[in-house]
Design a protein around this nucleic acid. Structure first.
Length: 616
DNA sequence: ACGCTCGCATCAGGTGGGAAACGG
DNA sequence: CCGTTTCCCACCTGATGCGAGCGT
């Protein structure tokens, strides 16, 4: 897929690549750290652990550990002058005047007691570069008062967008986010009750404008923002076991620029166009009635993922972002050129065979086909498609009891975002440690993730979360994206030409000759790219490598991706024999490796699944 | 006769594109 | 005039309702 080509340069380890990426219109020179950061992030897991900032902790308390890889771009704007954005953000200042009242938050779970219980200045340790945020961090531990651990489930997709500076459409009637926020949480008390909500705050004090193919600041942000800034998860409050059971998806969160008092405004987050925002996840321990649990040691924990930053727009500015949206959002399939239900490029019999089986499986075994019930499926990344992982997800999830699915907002069982840190090979722990090493907020001397353990050990990097966790993958990806393994891919193969007309020169997918994107010219850079692609579905690919370690090596996966990309390109130009061979070989491997065997991956997967709950 | 499953049609909602409208 | 916003459009997805077919 050409889209992956773009990742090629993006994840080149060379500085040239980083510099080249910085030329992207998205971030431009405004986020010089992004390039290097993502170069290494690309090797990271598709999830991302961030330790909480705990309300009761002193912001000045030094922490021995630096988990958060916060970069300046990941900081949250905390203007000193604006009372709305105090240096130490807290609920009382950021939330609407009424706080979490039903009228403002759209929920009735939060009583005034909750507001009063908030400790100003400690709930939102600011990433102001002062290090205060970092100081709030503590190592996740077990036992009472344990700090929750939050994983951004669809981090690869977020990263893809973030590389180009994510844009989110805001409309009067409200527009869903894409990618939407989806988290996995660990470390909560199984029986305690929590409310989970997302808050969107200004990420910086600037007004932004897309000029000259890049985002540039244009004056100061309008601090007079009003309206709801919080979206409380519909299932709040609920038990820790409930929150940890599945992904917590905010797929129905809507963004609007309508400050009016519309009937639905309480369920939408009001933003201002051309302002940069940073979503935050908050976990509040409450009583069964939804009132904050005063007796709890840890009341509120906040999590910020820099890659979730976005600029609110009323119309897309960067065509790269537009294309990413079209490519990844199922609801935008209509804008995919040459979209079809099956790929015309799949002339190989083995190919067709594989895909047919996959499609059959997904159709017959779907559990929760609802788009809203399958938030993960909304955000399948190309890497997943090419590695055909959704199929595995489907297989795995078929073994899960239906009652594990909840309401529409988060009917997604633990999937590739599974938290389970336990793995046989300790890979996940390595990943976990890496997260801890991601160290440093804006003040850290380095904003890069230390992914050294992954570099040079590709296979390990692909299994950072442990294979077992993947076996909990849901079928949602397939159900909501029923053609994800094939048509999407085929669409990609056949549609690029049309895309090109809108592609900006900086678009990494552009087929134009590029020293950093050419496969033949710079094969060394192909691997990083594909690695990232695989990583995008990192957790997805894990079950494959686990169940079929020999049938389909990761190298083959690379070849597959590469070959498929080439093949897709071949629709425009002559295809190479090599690519065909690789494609078919891989497809054949996929066919012969019986990835559809339900028992193979499920046994371990389910074991891991349950171990997760028995070993919180 | 009753209940269940399946397929089809319809509907609601989400998507980006593009033109028109708006506003500084 | 130019940048931004709004509205409408075609297209897509999934949910829902209905009837036919089948088994008990």
């Amino acid at each position: 897929m050409l889209g992956g080509e773009g990742e090629n340069s993006t994840f080149s380890s060379t500085k040239e690549a980083a510099d080249d990426r910085r030329k992207s219109p998205a971030v431009g020179g405004d986020d010089p750290t992004a390039a290097s950061r993502y170069t290494e992030h690309g090797m990271d897991a598709d999830r991302y652990y961030i330790p909480p900032t705990v309300s009761k902790q002193s912001p000045e308390t030094p922490s021995p550990c630096s988990f958060i890889p916060y970069t300046p771009s990941g900081t949250v704007y905390t203007p000193s002058s604006a009372g709305r954005y105090p240096s130490s953000l807290h609920l009382g200042s950021v939330l609407p005047p009424a706080g979490f009242s039903p009228s403002t938050a759209g929920r009735s779970h939060f009583s005034p007691a909750y507001q009063l219980a908030q400790s100003p200045g400690c709930i939102y340790p600011p990433y102001t570069g002062s290090g205060s945020a970092l100081s709030n961090l503590t190592l996740p531990t077990a036992g009472p008062g344990v700090r929750a651990q939050v994983y951004l489930c669809n981090r690869p997709l977020w990263l893809k967008f973030h590389r180009h500076q994510t844009e989110m459409i805001i409309t009067k009637q409200g527009r869903r986010m894409f990618p939407f926020l989806s988290f996995n949480i660990a470390g909560l008390s199984l029986t305690a009750h929590y409310s989970v909500f997302v808050e969107v705050v200004l990420a910086d004090p600037n007004h932004w404008r897309f000029q000259g193919g890049k985002w540039v600041t244009c004056g100061k942000a309008d601090n007079s923002s009003q309206g709801n800034k919080v979206y409380i998860h519909p299932e709040s409050p609920n038990t820790g076991a409930h929150w940890m059971r599945q992904e917590i998806s905010f797929s129905k969160l809507k963004l609007t620029n309508n400050k009016g008092t519309g009937h639905n405004t309480s369920q939408m987050i009001v933003l201002q166009s051309l302002h940069k925002y940073q979503p935050r996840l908050h976990i509040v321990e409450v009583t069964e009635d939804g009132v904050e649990d005063i007796s709890s040691d840890v009341k509120t924990q906040s999590f910020t993922f820099p890659e979730n930053q976005f600029i609110a727009v009323t119309a897309y500015q960067n065509t790269d972002i537009t294309q990413l949206k079209i490519d990844h959002n199922p609801f935008a399939k209509g804008f995919r050129d040459n979209y079809d239900s099956h790929s015309p490029s799949l002339t190989s019999s083995s190919y067709v065979h594989v895909f047919s089986r996959m499609y059959t499986a997904q159709e017959n075994d779907r559990l929760t086909p609802s788009p809203t019930d399958s938030p993960r499926a909304h955000q399948i990344v190309p890497g997943a498609r090419y590695t055909m992982q959704p199929l595995f997800q489907d297989q795995f999830v078929n073994n899960l009891p239906q009652n594990r699915f909840y309401n529409s907002e988060r009917a997604v069982p633990q999937t590739n975002c599974l938290l389970s840190p336990q793995t046989e090979d300790g890979a996940s722990q390595r990943w976990f440690v890496t997260s801890m090493q991601q160290g440093g907020n804006g003040t850290s001397t380095t904003n890069k993730l230390d992914l050294t353990p992954y570099e040079g050990e590709y296979s390990s990097s692909l299994l950072p979360y442990g294979i077992k966790s993947l076996s909990m993958q849901t079928s949602h990806a397939l159900s909501y994206y029923p053609d994800s393994p094939f048509p999407t891919m085929s669409a990609g193969w056949g549609s690029r030409a049309a895309y090109q007309r809108k592609i900006t020169p900086s678009l990494p997918w552009s087929p134009r000759p590029s020293p950093t994107t050419g496969f033949s010219e710079d094969s060394n850079k192909v691997k990083p790219q594909i690695e990232e692609e695989v990583n995008d579905s990192g957790s997805l690919i894990s079950p494959w490598t686990e169940t079929q370690p020999s049938a389909l090596s990761l190298d083959n996966a690379h070849s597959y991706s590469t070959a498929c990309k080439r093949r897709r390109l071949s629709l425009i130009g002559p295809s190479t024999e090599d690519s065909d061979i690789k494609c078919e070989d891989l497809a054949s491997a996929a066919t012969n490796s019986s990835p559809y065997s339900k028992e193979a991956p499920s046994s371990k997967g389910m074991a891991a699944y349950y171990s997760f709950y028995t070993n919180p």
